[in-house]
Design a protein around this nucleic acid. Sequence first.
RNA 1: GGGGCUGUAGCUCAGCCAGGUCAGAGCGCUAGCCUGUCACGCUAGAGGUCGCGGGUUCAAGUCCCGUCAGCCCCGCCA
Length: 602
Amino acid sequence: MKEWKRTHTCGELRPAHVGQTVRLNGWVHRIRDLGGLVFVDLRDRTGLVQVVFDPAIDAELHRRAGDLRVEYCVAIAGEVRRRRPGAENPKLATGEIEVFAHALHVFSPSKTPPFPINEENLQVDEMVRLKYRYLDLRRPAMYARLELRHRVVKFIRDFLSERGFLEVETPILIKSTPEGARDYLVPSRLYPGKFYALPQSPQQLKQLLMVAGVERYFQIARCFRDEDPRADRQPEFTQLDLEMSFVERDDILNLIEELYIGIVEQCSSKRVIKPFPRLTYDEAIARYGTDKPDLRFGMELCDLTDALRETQFQAFRNVIESGGIVKAIAIPGCAGYSRREIEELTEFVKRFGAKGLATMALTEEGIRSPIAKFLSEDELQAILARTNAQTGDLIAIVADTPRVVHEALGRLRQRMGIQLKLADPNLMAFAWVIDFPLFEWDEAEGRWNSTHHPFTAPHEEDIPLLDTDPSKVRAQCYDLVCNGNELASGSIRIHRRDLQDKVFKLLGYTDAEIQERFGHLLEAFEYGPPPHGGIAPGIDRTVMLLTDDETIRNVIAFPKNTAMVDVMFGAPSPVSEEQLRELHIRIVLDEDDAERHGARED
RNA sequence: GGGGCUGUAGCUCAGCCAGGUCAGAGCGCUAGCCUGUCACGCUAGAGGUCGCGGGUUCAAGUCCCGUCAGCCCCGCCA
């Protein structure tokens, strides 16, 4: 290696280097063999440079260059020369110069890669990319993602360090507390029949750090949740976990707002809207039908309930009389939608519980609508006025319970915003959503659930409602949303033992359960816990938004696929009898499982 | 647990909806030619159990059933 060690990187060479003899290390990106002259684009992580093999310099070397193949890992030594006039390549940062090789060393040859490394815009089957992830990551676009992620995390570390935060590591092997998502379990060898769990988040640990007097904590924390995957989810993912003592909500909101403005402005070329709008949960639901609205476009939900209270259209009237609501959105420019296209939208909203979708197309010739004949002129005018629809728009109306109406129209709004390209891809439209309800009623279980988590503090003035109407208690919690994604979630925590007990009781925990699951935290809270609160932004999603990726997998170096399989390593995999014996574990498969997956290593 | 889409050469795809020259294209690969290319060019060639199994038919990438795999979504994600 020593005599071939590089003096320069490929991407840094400029006309200023002309005349210098340089050594370069890298991979053969592309070869153009003209017979009498061989051009090789040499690539390292900094970029590309053109190397020329000229028989006039060394005939034998020129011959050997002809044997090079793509992705060979090589060193070359040569002289930097300015390119002859007209031969410059403005597409390359190094395009004004080239390196005339006088020596070549092949560190290692390469088989032909299973997919092209040198084609930027080729969409390759993700299964193949994941299997050969080390080759996928060689592609400059993928390296750029790793690099961006590094810069984002470094910015976070610097930003918080400057503000007095301490980065503290918390354990990966902790205790299973069967709240929320399914835990990943790790069997204990020393304690037969007992298990550790991987943290879904360091939630309780960071609160204990506040009791410990750390005051300002953060961690780039790996979290594990055994739930079914999605494009924006992985079984393990990374959060910026953060907690502060002696603060109130706005201290955290202001800090994170400044942090995210910094991330976007320092690490990307996207725009942010400052300051971040703040919406209450109720407002977000009412206007956008979701608690994670995409604010890059309008198309807000309009309430038609009042205007249609006396309507003769039974479908609406029945809904309203039984306590439901009627809302609408005006979808711009879609008045020309065919029956088939409208039918497709109807199917879409039905997936979210709507019984149907009423539409009114505002064409040049007037209103085209299957329901117009059931509505009075006043009612039609009210709908037009409230939706502020213009000629050419398609008004989409859903009548149902508030929950269904908001879900269906909220999803339709988001989908159409993207489909109609109303959302500026260069804009990061952040917003805070605040004042979530502390509890939500769980129909299936017939009890209250925490909207955020059971340590979330209620608003002071709402505490009396805990005894009278828990559904009306607002939580001191907050979500950071951006472009229709939830990026972060946090809250001011309960630090009073009596209040915490009261909340646990409301959630239906018995004293024994409270003791078993939260005893350690509650005991700590008997030793002078400070008022505290925190937040946990998702790092993967943050980076994914900055890179415009459709999936979180693209910003994770070694992700799992949607079957939760690591196709490069082949994990999960069977383990040996010996390993199982040590862990006191016996595999019990039912017949279907046994047929589909062997769980033992033979 | 449920739904949708996809599966043809190493890669990206056409062919399927009207079953019968349907084993095809581009890129890549191999060989030859080529001294200013930069997606080099030109010539020739190799390469496919059309995901797998079954069925219908004289005949199946093509139609039917099942199954596997991938992606997306619903449920789930305190």
